[in-house]
């Protein structure tokens, strides 16, 4: 059953402003819990070479937590904006745990599917992506957030623009540059390598 609480928290926020801190925290907690259990389930289902689709997980969590019929797209964007971050956190925590448990069962290599980065959907190692995002955040925090919302949240341009409070054009620009940068880094050929 969609939770009336989360829905209500989302509805309380007016379309134009950000969610209050406390509401965001509550949504984050609920989303984290939900995403975590979905991820565990997915991991059990797929025996080897785990590929998670963060956007799919998020959609499922959304359907479980939010009465979609009552919210508007802005509320939805708020939710996905927070849940994208929770998704990333779930993956990081898994990675940490598996490192701690040494050769724990299957957490070592979690592949996630990203769309939009290449012509087709593409699998990347979750840990690699996390390290890259951390670096990008150091260079250009907003761009890193755009990637997070896009890759983990599956948000559209307009939705990201709404969540970050900037124009859609800025988001598109960020995304274009981030795409080039990520492709370069993921290809193993860092843009910053000294000349061969």
């Amino acid at each position: 059953m969609p939770g009336p609480e989360i829905t209500a928290l989302l509805l309380d926020a007016t379309a134009a402003t950000a969610l209050p801190r406390s509401a965001a925290d509550q949504i984050f907690a609920a989303a984290y819990e939900e995403l975590h259990s979905i991820a565990v389930r997915e991991m059990r289902k797929e025996r080897a070479g785990h590929t998670l689709q963060p956007t799919a997980l998020l959609n499922e969590a959304y359907i479980k937590l939010v009465d979609a019929s009552r919210v508007r797209w802005q509320n939805r964007a708020h939710f996905f904006g927070i849940a994208a971050h929770a998704m990333r956190q779930v993956l990081i925590d898994h990675a940490r745990k598996s490192a701690a448990a040494k050769r724990g069962r299957g957490w070592k290599r979690v592949m996630i599917t990203v769309s939009g980065l290449y012509a087709d959907d593409h699998e990347v190692n979750a840990v690699d992506l996390e390290l890259l995002l951390a670096r990008l955040a150091g260079l250009h925090p907003r761009m890193a957030r755009v990637v997070e919302l896009r890759v983990f949240g599956g948000l559209s341009g307009a939705e990201i623009a709404f969540v970050l409070g900037v124009s859609r054009k800025t988001i598109v620009d960020d995304w274009r540059v981030a795409t080039l940068w990520l492709r370069a880094e993921l290809s193993g050929e860092s843009a910053e390598d000294p000349d061969p």
Binding site: Q53, T55, A56, G154, S156, V172
Partner: peptide
């Protein structure tokens, strides 16, 4: 790469 709103949520 950054679709407009109506095309979301992504159908999986």
């Amino acid at each position: 790469d950054l679709p407009e709103l109506p095309e979301l949520p992504e159908r999986l």
